[in-house]
């Protein structure tokens, strides 16, 4: 999940949920500090990109740094599988029915 020594990006999806693990340290850049303030509650990478007005790929770079510094936690999305999880689909249906 976390950037390797050659600076490769973390495996981050548009709907990976990000949660801050700490307050912004004094060393944080303004972008990092803004990002940490936005993810005091779980928030998707897409929402971070929207609120920060930064492209998705730029947000993934910033998040890669924050993950490496252990300042945020990433909750991976549930992705489509060859054999889809029927209970997941049923949960989504129930949620939609309540709309």
């Amino acid at each position: 999940m976390v950037a390797g020594p050659d600076g490769e990006r973390a495996d981050i999806d548009l709907v990976t949920l990000i949660v801050a693990r700490a307050d912004p340290p004094p060393s944080a850049t303004p972008e990092q500090a803004a990002m940490l303030r936005l993810c005091t509650a779980p928030i998707s990478v897409a929402e971070l990109s929207a609120y920060l007005s930064l492209p998705f790929s730029v947000v993934t770079v910033l998040l890669t740094e924050l993950l490496a510094a252990e300042l945020v936690q990433a909750r991976a999305p549930i992705v489509r599988q060859a054999l889809p999880d029927r209970s997941l689909l049923e949960a989504v249906m129930h949620g939609l029915q309540r709309l």
Binding site: L38, P42, R75, P77, I78
Partner: peptide, 24 residues
Amino acid sequence: FKGSDTIPGPRTEDHLPHTAQAAV
């Protein structure tokens, strides 16, 4: 970049609960 003080975040009522584990 706008600077961190001017970033409008989600309204409090738009926050996901801390229990949110995963998205689809």
